[in-house]
Structures are given as C-alpha cells and as structure tokens.
Design a protein around this nucleic acid. Sequence first.
DNA 1: TCAAAGGTAGGAAAAATTTCGTACGAAAAA
DNA 2: TTTTTCGTACGAAATTTTTCCTACCTTTGA
Lengths: 120, 120
Amino acid sequence: MEPTKSELEILQVLWEHGPSTVRFVNDKLNEEKRAVQYSSTLKLMQIMAEKGIVMRDESSMKHIYSPAEPEDKTKSALLERFVDSMYKGSASSLVMQLFGNKNTSAEELSEIRDFLKNLD
Amino acid sequence: MEPTKSELEILQVLWEHGPSTVRFVNDKLNEEKRAVQYSSTLKLMQIMAEKGIVMRDESSMKHIYSPAEPEDKTKSALLERFVDSMYKGSASSLVMQLFGNKNTSAEELSEIRDFLKNLD
DNA sequence: TCAAAGGTAGGAAAAATTTCGTACGAAAAA
DNA sequence: TTTTTCGTACGAAATTTTTCCTACCTTTGA
C-alpha cells in the first residue's frame, strides 16, 4: 500500500536503524525532524501495522516494529511512481533534470558514469 | 508552496497543454486520469490561484489559468525534495536505484551516457 | 425575448491524514 | 508493598485535502 508522508518518515528511521520500538522511532523523529508526541508516533505505527506496511513483534512488552518490505523494493516503487507521474515514465528525462539544473559534485558524476559503464 | 497530489495533476495538464480553462483541464483529467466533477476541478484551481500556484486571467468570462512558475523550476524543486528525503540528497544513489532495479531501454541508457559525457 | 447551456463563486460536507488526551497494565524503583 | 515510570490501546479531535451542491450570472440559440 501507499505510505503517507508521515509514514515515510517512520519507515526511514526503521530503514536506517533496523527494527525499533516506538520510543526509539519517536526519539529519532524529534531529534532529526520535528516535535511530535509519543502517542502520535505510536498511533501512526499501529496504523502502519494494520495496513501491513510494518510488522510488529509483540512477544515482549516493548513491541518491535520492522518494515514489511525491503527498503529497495519500497523505494523502487516510489521512485517508479514518481518517474511515471512527473516524467511520463522517462528515466532519462529525470536524470537530465537532476543534473541539468543542479550542481552535482564531480565525484557523484564519475560514480554514475562508472555505474552506467558496467551496466551491460 | 507545496502542490498537493491533486494539484499536481492539474499542473501537469497545464504544463502539457499550456494555459487552459477549467473546462479543458477537467475534461483532460476525466479522459486521462479519473472521473471528477467540474466543480471539484474549479474549486481546486481557485485554491491554487489563491495559493499563487497558478495565475488567472479574468479578462474574459472564461478564466484562463496558467502555471505561476516554469515547469522546470517546479519539477526541479519537487525532484530535489524527493532526493533529499528518499536518498539523503545523493543523486547518484537515486540513479543507481533507477537503473539497478528497473529494465531501462538501451536507448535511454545511451541517451543518458551522451548527456553525461557533454556535461563538463 | 427567453430558455438553455455554460461559466464562476462560495460554502459545506466528506474523506484522508495527523495529533494527542486518557485509561490502563506491566515493570522497575523506592 | 507501594509508587513511579514506561509501555500499549483506544477514541476523539484537529487539520488538511478533496469533492460537490447550490446560487447566480453571462452568452448563445431558438
């Protein structure tokens, strides 16, 4: 299913730090993003569990949440939807926009060139 | 400001077809996307005008709406926000994901290689 | 002229998303 | 044991976004 904006923030914490408690996620959000109440984060993560976006291990009192799908799979899906809706599915259009209007570091560029070279 | 999902759909019609009436945009949405009432599209476009996302020419009875910002500028901003939030700002990560997990056509690939070659 | 068609405006309702207060149970500390 | 701390659950409220009803005006065609 479709993660909402707030759900995505939570997923990102789980991706970065692995399976976590609500407390941990909430702390990270407050450190890295914005003020948010514990109960709000809890509620959101409960909803995500209902939707099947995350799995919940209830064996101990402190429930442990983890992403239901691998990070790559979710990100790919989101990226693909982004390309489809914004660039009519043209990956090259996206790349050109990405490097046309932005100043990307030389390292990044050569990294990409190498990557593309080895793609065949 | 931030276009919402529905607002983005409208912007895309305006980008593709140029300045348009509400009627025209609504028809396109119904053709290309989904069933939506004229008054819903009207309302949304009025809100977008208030927010400054689109400009409105009221000189004739049929108001003409056009994007307030150039397509590239808006798309770049959205893309940048996407990269920042999903790939911590790393354009190369995005590109690798884009081509790693997806089967991109050979044409697209060479197009991009050429593009990157001429970037310096 | 006058009805029909097509336009805008505005408000209210509906739906989706986000936030948080409160209750209550378990664990830990005093 | 008793109190405090820390956890979940639940429901309701607030906010944001989306949808559409209705009123009313202008243009067009019969």
